[in-house]
């Protein structure tokens, strides 16, 4: 406890008061509304065909988006850390575009790109691939908004990775691929998993980027966040509360997963080396 520097009570007081008012009170109200509807009705809402389909669509497209970002994000982080080339700094700055660009803007931009006469939609239609108004479109939007997660979690770990470890492996005659698989990847794996989990969590709740490209057909291309929104517009508050509370529960599960990964990582660093 630091007893020299002043302002502990004041700063902690402000922080707790503000968090209670702005974050905890609304979330408590949501949980209160959800518990108010009763267990059997809650289950009935969640297992209703349309809600169930929305969760199914959301989880599968989020998994697809995460898979894409796991590969692309890892490659991007690798290229940014390991190679020097003209435009590297610009590339590094571009990674943050999905965080800085409003989701609604990303949404209309992606739907313009993948429209029938769009830059991507035209050529893809020629190949018989439809993206707009299909689950693939949802996955594209989710992938776009969560690109930075894997890159930004893997990048610092890869930067700190000691060169002598892989040099040792190389002097022992291991091939590049083998060194990557057996030495480098295990070292960055916890960070990689953290980034992928964060991206997945973000995709589960994504709304703005998706609704413009998804087509939003119930049972087919309707995501959970949109269904929540629709229930609110229909004044069906119990259903909105039940779905939103479930989504909140999923967010907490993902947070727990990320924390477990980080704990595991710290323990590994503590005992390793």
């Amino acid at each position: 406890m630091n007893r020299v520097v002043p302002g502990f009570a004041l700063s902690l007081g402000i922080t707790l008061f503000y968090l209670s008012l702005i974050v905890l009170l609304p979330l408590a109200a949501l949980v209160w509304q959800a518990t108010d509807i009763g267990w059997s009705r809650y289950l009935a809402i969640l297992t209703g065909a349309r809600t169930f389909a929305a969760f199914e669509v959301t989880l599968t497209t989020a998994a697809l988006a995460t898979l894409f970002n796991a590969v692309y994000g890892l490659a991007l982080a690798w290229v940014l850390v390991r190679y020097e080339f003209p435009g590297r700094r610009l590339l590094d700055a571009l990674v943050d575009v999905p965080f800085a660009l409003p989701t609604a803007v990303a949404g209309i931009a992606l739907s313009a790109l993948f429209a029938k006469n769009g830059w991507f939609g035209g050529p893809l239609a020629g190949l018989g691939i439809e993206v707009a108004y299909t689950p693939i479109g949802i996955a594209v939007a989710m992938a776009f908004t969560s690109i930075p997660f894997v890159v930004r979690t893997v990048q610092p770990v890869l930067e700190d990775f000691a060169a002598d470890v892989e040099e040792a492996a190389a002097t022992l005659g291991a091939s590049d691929l083998r060194i990557f698989a057996r030495v480098i990847f295990p070292a960055i794996f916890p960070a990689f998993l953290t980034g992928a989990s964060l991206g997945f969590a973000r995709s589960l709740g994504e709304f703005g980027a998706i609704i413009f490209i998804a087509g939003n057909r119930p049972m087919k291309t309707e995501v959970v966040s949109l269904l929540t929104f629709i229930r609110i517009e229909e004044y069906d508050y119990p259903a909105a509360a039940a779905i939103a509370a479930t989504l909140l529960g999923l967010a907490f599960v993902m947070l727990f997963v990320v924390n477990m990964i980080q704990l595991w990582q710290q323990r590994r660093i503590g005992t390793g080396d």
Partner: peptide, 15 residues
């Protein structure tokens, strides 16, 4: 950061 903006909006409605 971990909570969907949609959840935030719905929560505020319930307050």
């Amino acid at each position: 950061f971990s909570i969907s903006p949609i959840i935030a909006g719905v929560s505020y409605l319930f307050v």
